[in-house]
Simulated assay, not measured.
Amino acid sequence: MESFQLTKEFSSSYGKVSYDSNGEGPPLILVHGTPWSSFNWRHIIPALSQWFTVYYYDLLGYGQSEKPDGDVSLGVQNKVFSELLNYWGLQKPIVIGHDFGGTTILRTHLLDKQEFEKIILIDPVAVAPWGSSFFSHVNEYETAFQGIPEYIHKAIVSTYVQGAKYNSMDKETVEEIINPWLGTTGKRAFYRQIAQASQKYTDDIEPLYGKITRPVLIIWGERDSWIPIEKGVELHKQIKSSKFVPINNAGHLVQEDQPTILLTHILKFLAI
């Protein structure tokens, strides 16, 4: 597998963000979640680039972006995203967000008042309560996790990310996903972003979902063991302008499990 590389860099107020763009046409932005990176959009970028100028980036503290020692929480990601939108000079782009990427889009729209043409949310972290026992453990014992040997850390991250996919994940994909989280900097960054995950960042916006008027498509993997599909149904009820599409034989990482079916629903919603 050829290594996935981002070629451009933006210096936000909070740290350096790596990004790239591809294609021509109306602007469309892909925002990944945790513990992922823009690498996980690789199956759908080429197709979307046939109709759109596709922008994709690694969240601050993730992937190829800078991994600062400070705040990389959801409370910062929407601010970085707003700065990126202004830097790119984009007005009312189409946005697609997965997991924390969906949360970031919702916070950017509802709190920072950034307007989007259409919004697509894929298994987003959006409806309380959320967070696993693993998240709670890391939050309470972050220093202890930071001190575990590298080989144990690698095994933890590898096992963790594979749990997001319904179908088995090949070795090369696992390696690309976990590579940014290895080494001293990567290990610190991995446990930092988990320790900083807090439901307060969705509590801020959940009461505002009823105010969303833009067209919204909510896509959910039926076999999502990280965030059950019932959360997607509840989000659909809260966002009156939304459509809801379940995808069979897909877990939390729909873009890895069923990229072709995912693309079909995206393009249909965008009227391509």
Rank of each mutant, 00 (worst) to 15 (best):
I105L: 03
H109D: 01
I96H: 03
V127G: 05
R107S: 15
D99V: 08
D123K: 11
K113Q: 09
T104R: 04
P129R: 00
W88F: 14
L111M: 11
K113P: 07
I120P: 12
L106V: 07
I94L: 14
L106E: 05
L90P: 06
K118L: 02
G102I: 00
G97A: 01
I119C: 03
A128S: 14
L84P: 15
P129L: 03
G89Q: 06
K118C: 03
F100Y: 13
I120L: 15
D99T: 07
F116L: 00
T104D: 02
L90G: 10
Q91F: 09
I96V: 13
T103Q: 03
Q77G: 10
G89L: 11
W88P: 03
F100N: 13
Q77R: 02
K118W: 04
D112K: 03
Y87D: 14
L90Q: 06
E115V: 07
K79H: 04
E117P: 10
Q114H: 01
R107H: 13
G102Q: 06
K118Y: 11
G89P: 07
T104I: 09
A126H: 07
E117G: 13
Y87R: 14
L106N: 02
L121E: 05
V80C: 12
L106K: 05
V76C: 11
K92Y: 15
A126P: 02
E117V: 09
T108S: 09
N86Q: 08
I94W: 05
T108W: 00
K92P: 14
E117R: 09
F100C: 03
T104M: 08
T108R: 05
L106Y: 05
L110I: 07
A128I: 08
I119V: 13
E117A: 12
R107P: 12
P129E: 02
G89C: 05
G102C: 02
P129F: 06
A126F: 04
L85W: 00
I105A: 05
E117I: 15
I105Y: 04
G89Y: 12
K79T: 08
I105F: 06
S82I: 01
G101K: 07
L121A: 05
R107N: 12
K118S: 11
P129M: 00
F100Q: 04
H109T: 08
V127K: 07
G97K: 00
S82N: 01
L111T: 09
D123E: 15
I122E: 15
L106D: 02
D99I: 08
K118M: 05
L90W: 00
V125I: 12
V125E: 11
K113S: 08
L110R: 03
A126T: 10
K113T: 12
T103E: 09
V125L: 06
L90M: 07
D123F: 13
T108M: 02
W88C: 07
L121W: 08
L121D: 08
T108Q: 03
T103C: 06
I94P: 11
F100I: 10
D123A: 14
Q91G: 12
I122L: 14
